[in-house]
């Protein structure tokens, strides 16, 4: 099992803690990006925390996930360390990908996190590939491919779901329907009301669940995992959710108004789960405030670590690209070293 499940009070509190950690991470990343400290783009998961955490709570530690461009939440849900994630965002040598990937390419294969991805809809093909390896090697695992609502229209998504369905692979496809593909409302992108209806085209079950409720997401993924491990093939799950921030930081969001965001905030996945745990006697307001402060401290420590961490040496830009040494690449790397060391140009 995962190191937290929703079957125990401790697991439920841990799920809440991970949602808090994701929110702190992404709010902090948004602030630092606005201040110009973080290079590239950041796409924040604020509001969608229940999908990543609900999914990972229903997985085993060694199950795989393949993420999207909005992947920070998936990473924390799967157990990655915010310290090395933040270092990656800052382009530092200690980042998960040695600072080469940034926000959209965090990966930690040992933790089962096969990678976030800047290519829309790239998660499902990776999950199908991982599921094929699981099947081929007879391992007791599943692979989850996350995708957004916009990605449902991508050809590679259907190729991946088709193969996984036809070969009966232990894959789960989790659609995070946050209502907008960049700035286009979901109704203007798809001719089906529920994106899980597309599962029917591949002869697999598709269900739509409340993506603001961590228990609903976990229950659906748990059933999908059972199905996959029983040899019954893949499942498509659509989690209806919402991002409170823009598609990317800096998005002017002319496609929606503040009232709509407020309506979704009323169903906030953290606030609602917190209230339910308090009602169950598994949490108090005071403990929640402590957890919030701890999550914030964890991210502040991660931020301090990232800022202080070493930059990668320019020659590292040529590393981790090829399995075997390539003479031309070696030559470029040596030239980069020479330039950095003040040698001959």
């Amino acid at each position: 099992m995962s190191d937290y499940t929703l079957d125990s009070a401790e697991g439920r509190v841990e799920a809440l803690r991970r949602m808090l950690t994701i929110r702190s991470f992404d709010e902090t990343a948004g602030e630092r990006f606005a201040d110009g400290e973080i290079p590239g783009f950041v796409h924040l998961y604020v509001g969608e925390e229940a999908v990543g955490v609900g999914t990972c709570a229903a997985l085993n530690d060694d199950d795989y996930i393949a993420s999207t461009h909005r992947g920070h939440g998936h990473c924390i849900a799967k157990g990655l360390n915010p310290k090395y994630m933040m270092a990656e965002l800052y382009g530092k040598a200690d980042g998960y990908c040695n600072g080469k990937g940034g926000s959209m390419h965090i990966a930690d294969v040992d933790a089962g996190m096969l990678g976030a991805n800047g290519i829309v809809g790239a998660g499902p093909p990776m999950a199908t590939g991982a599921a094929l390896s699981i099947d081929y090697q007879g391992r007791d695992q599943v692979a989850v491919g996350f995708l957004g609502d916009g990605a449902v229209a991508q050809g590679q998504v259907h190729e991946a779901v088709n193969l996984a369905s036809t070969w009966n692979l232990p894959a789960i496809f989790v659609i995070e329907n946050n209502r907008y593909g960049e700035g286009t409302p979901v109704e203007q992108q798809h001719n089906v009301d529920n994106l899980s209806d597309t599962a029917a085209a591949h002869g697999i079950p598709g269900v739509t669940v409340d993506g603001m409720d961590v228990t609903a997401v976990a229950e659906a993924v748990e059933e999908a995992r059972k199905r996959a491990r029983a040899g019954d093939g893949p499942t498509m799950i659509e989690a209806e959710t919402y991002r409170y921030r823009g598609h990317y930081e800096g998005d002017e969001q002319v496609y929606r108004d503040e009232d709509e965001v407020e309506r979704w905030r009323e169903q906030d996945p953290i606030a609602s789960f917190k209230e339910r745990l308090i009602d169950r006697g598994e949490l108090t307001e005071a403990v929640f405030e402590e957890m919030q402060a701890e999550a914030q401290a964890t991210i502040e420590n991660a931020l301090a670590y990232a800022k202080e961490a070493d930059d990668p040496h320019p020659s590292e830009a040529y590393e981790d690209m090829f399995g075997d040494s390539v003479p031309e690449i070696e030559r470029f790397a040596q030239q980069a070293t020479a330039r950095t060391d003040g040698g001959d140009h």
Partner: peptide, 12 residues
């Protein structure tokens, strides 16, 4: 009702 007929009982 567009939402009817699509819950998890299609899976379980």
């Amino acid at each position: 009702n567009p939402g009817a007929g699509r819950d998890i009982r299609r899976l379980t």
